Simulated scan of single mutants.
Amino acid sequence: MKLHEYQAKQVFADAGIPTPPSQLAEDVDGVLSAAGEIGYPVAIKAQVQVGGRGKAGGIELVSDDEEAREAADSILGMDLKGIHVDRVLVEGAVDFVNELYVGVTMDRGEGKPVAMVSTKGGVDIEAVAEETPDAIVREHVDPAFGMHPYQARKAVYDAGVDREVARDVASVLTTLYELWDDRDGADAEINPLMVTDDDEVIAADAVMNVDEDALFRQPEIAEMQEEAASGDELEQKADEYDFDYVRLEGDVGIIGNGAGLVMTTLDLVDHYGGEPANFLDVGGGAKAERITNALDMVFSDDNVESVVFNIFGGITRGDEVARGINEALEAFDEIPKPVVVRLAGTNWEEGMEILNEDLVTVEGTLESAVQRAVEYAEEGQA
């Protein structure tokens, strides 16, 4: 479960992490009212769960009512990376001199939680990890004992954080780990953690993802679930269809049966130079109707330029899948995006015979199917 920024900030603030004054608004009048109470300058921030909101026009810094009205008109109702913006966070602007990054997640390779600190905050941390990995200091934590104070201090000092704020940054990191642990977190991060001229540290952004299977232990977080899901029609549609679905930011739509199979397909898309648009697991025993619903979902994502099916028949029958693909695509006067299909396992030969090759591209191996889908996506972006 992904919390919106305003929800995560409330959780962080309740735990004692400093955050700017802010109010949620759903219309222009609400934005102006909130800005008046907080005091200019303020940042107006789209509340959608995607990265790169600023670059996409979803965050504006304004200094008066006229600018606030223009920004609110522009952001509210916009389509931001395929998600409709229906709420904004109006937040007091922070006059900063430095931007840091702090985060906590699970390092599955080590089998331990890992706390991270970097002085390269305010930018895409994934890009930092790829281009300058040494700029991120990692400190693994034994979950049986939690994060010791010396570990937080070590991570902060090793990252090169200024001594004037090192103690406060270590305190924020310790609190963030405790939140991650207590709230059954998957990820928790602040990017940027801003440092002011007065040597205060303030969480200017907030990310908190919680394990949905643990929500029965987190009643306060569970109450936020409906609001957290609002705004993304595809996430809501996934709930209706009972799909395991995660929206990503690429352009190759992925449909498979089984989490491992879908993850393998995502990895191969990345390996062959593409960017996955989603994780969509239709589950075992998928009938024609379920496949039709899956295609409906993926085609509804404006970012998708191609679709790859990776179906391995165990419980699922290849002929049922093929029939579902045909039924879904035959309903279109024109196929929205090219579809590539790879079938294997139970009744795969029957499925191959059923597939209408006027509607889909059929590939014999997963590798060739992924490569073809990546090629189609590149052509669609050209």
Rank of each mutant, 00 (worst) to 15 (best):
D14I: 02
A15C: 06
I17E: 00
P18C: 13
T19N: 02
T19D: 09
P20D: 09
S22E: 09
L24P: 07
D27K: 01
V28I: 09
L32R: 11
V42S: 03
V42Y: 12
A43V: 02
K55T: 01
K55V: 00
E60C: 07
D64Y: 02
D65S: 14
E66P: 03
D73E: 15
S74Y: 05
D79G: 03
K81S: 15
D86M: 00
R87Y: 00
R87W: 03
V88C: 11
E91T: 02
E99H: 02
L100I: 06
Y101W: 08
V104L: 12
T105A: 09
P113F: 12
A115G: 11
T119N: 10
K120C: 07
E130V: 05
T132P: 10
P133V: 09
D134N: 13
D134K: 15
I136R: 00
I136P: 11
V137P: 15
R138F: 03
H140V: 05
P149F: 10
K154T: 13
V156R: 15
Y157R: 13
D158A: 14
G160F: 09
D162S: 10
D162R: 11
A170S: 14
V172H: 05
L173D: 12
L173F: 08
T174W: 14
L176V: 05
L179D: 00
W180C: 05
W180K: 04
R183W: 15
G185L: 04
D187K: 15
P192N: 13
M194Q: 08
D198T: 10
A204M: 14
A206S: 05
A214F: 07
L215W: 11
E223G: 06
M224F: 01
E235Y: 07
Q236H: 15
K237C: 01
D242W: 05
D242V: 01
Y245L: 08
Y245R: 03
R247I: 01
E249K: 14
E249G: 13
G250Y: 13
G250C: 07
I255G: 01
L261K: 03
V262I: 07
M263A: 04
D267K: 03
L268W: 07
D270T: 14
E275C: 01
N278H: 11
L280R: 10
V282E: 15
E289T: 15
R290E: 09
V298C: 04
D302Y: 06
V304W: 04
V307D: 07
V308E: 10
I311F: 14
D319I: 12
E327Q: 14
A331S: 15
D333P: 01
P336T: 12
P336G: 11
R342K: 12
T361M: 11
G364H: 12
G364R: 11
E367F: 14
A369C: 13
E375S: 14
E375M: 08
E378S: 07
